[in-house]
């Protein structure tokens, strides 16, 4: 498995959202994209999922351009969860998660035991087994977000791309999602690429952190060197300090409210 983009540039009308981005991920790696609002995180994820046509550059999975993949074949390998997905109101949690199996069942094949197992696993992993029959509209924002994650999981793809999966979640459920990401990569060798706003969570969960600023890559590497680079304060226009928590834990960024620059 290798997913990489080379010299990728994307623009929306006259606004260039991404400038010559080059990235690659390895099997089982967790890659976190951070950056200010409008820095191109979402655009990068869309391009990596083959949903945006780049102006120039390429995105390749196993050496083949994403654009040349059949959508269903691609969906068996790669699953993507956008930021604010829309579903029909009357759909239940289980029905949503079942749609995640479309790539496997196709237009007419009946759902088999393997599909049911994937659905059950996805519901269990997101703690939704008890809510399976509930309508999406009856869920809290956090539960709905987890239902969508479950649908992406049911796809059983080896690459999982999540656009801000922890927004709308309280701290408890944020940690649950991050732990799930860690488990997927450790136990199942799933590659996870996620955009995330919380710097500390990004440094905690990711093997590598990618910092984007105005559509350009300004840092790529593990949390330690990122902390040492001083780029966080500059890019986000804040002041603070990195605290070493010891025991090999990721560094922790402590933002200083009073002395933050205008």
């Amino acid at each position: 498995m290798s997913l990489q983009c080379t010299d990728l540039s994307v623009s929306y009308g006259s606004r260039q959202a991404l400038h010559a981005l080059t990235l690659s991920v390895q099997k089982g790696e967790v890659l976190a994209l951070i950056g200010p609002n409008g820095s191109g995180k979402s655009t990068a994820l869309h391009a990596l999922a083959g949903l945006t046509r780049p102006d120039s550059g390429s995105v390749e999975l196993d050496g083949r351009a994403l654009a040349s993949w059949r959508r269903r074949d691609l969906a068996k390998r790669l699953s993507f969860l956008p930021q604010a997905p829309i579903a029909p109101d009357e759909m239940s949690v289980e029905q949503l998660v079942r749609q995640g199996r479309f790539a496997h069942v196709g237009l007419w094949r009946a759902y088999g035991s393997q599909d049911q197992a994937a659905i059950d696993w996805a519901l269990d992993s997101t703690g939704l087994a008890d809510l399976a029959g509930r309508g999406l509209r009856e869920l809290s924002g956090g539960e709905r977000q987890r239902a969508w994650i479950a649908a992406a999981l049911a796809q059983e793809a080896e690459i999982l791309i999540l656009d801000e999966p922890t927004s709308f979640l309280d701290i408890g459920h944020q940690v649950e999602v991050l732990e799930l990401v860690g488990r997927l990569s450790r136990d199942r060798g799933v590659t996870v690429i996620l955009a995330i706003h919380d710097l500390n969570q990004a440094m905690m969960v990711a093997d590598r952190v990618v910092l984007l600023n105005r559509g350009r890559l300004s840092f790529e590497g593990p949390a330690g060197p990122l902390a040492a680079s001083g780029l966080i304060e500059k890019t986000f226009n804040v002041q603070g300090r990195f605290v070493d928590l010891g025991n090999g834990a990721a560094p922790h960024f402590d933002v200083d409210l009073r002395r933050s620059r205008r």
Binding site: L51, R72, A75, S79, I86, A87, Q99, F102
Partner: peptide, 24 residues
């Protein structure tokens, strides 16, 4: 009968449907 699942899929937004594997 062949359109049943695509019809369900098309009720999502395009990005979601395509990520699920639909040739939108």
């Amino acid at each position: 009968p062949l359109l049943r699942r695509p019809i369900d899929m098309l009720r999502f937004d395009a990005d979601v449907a395509r990520s699920f594997g639909l040739s939108y």
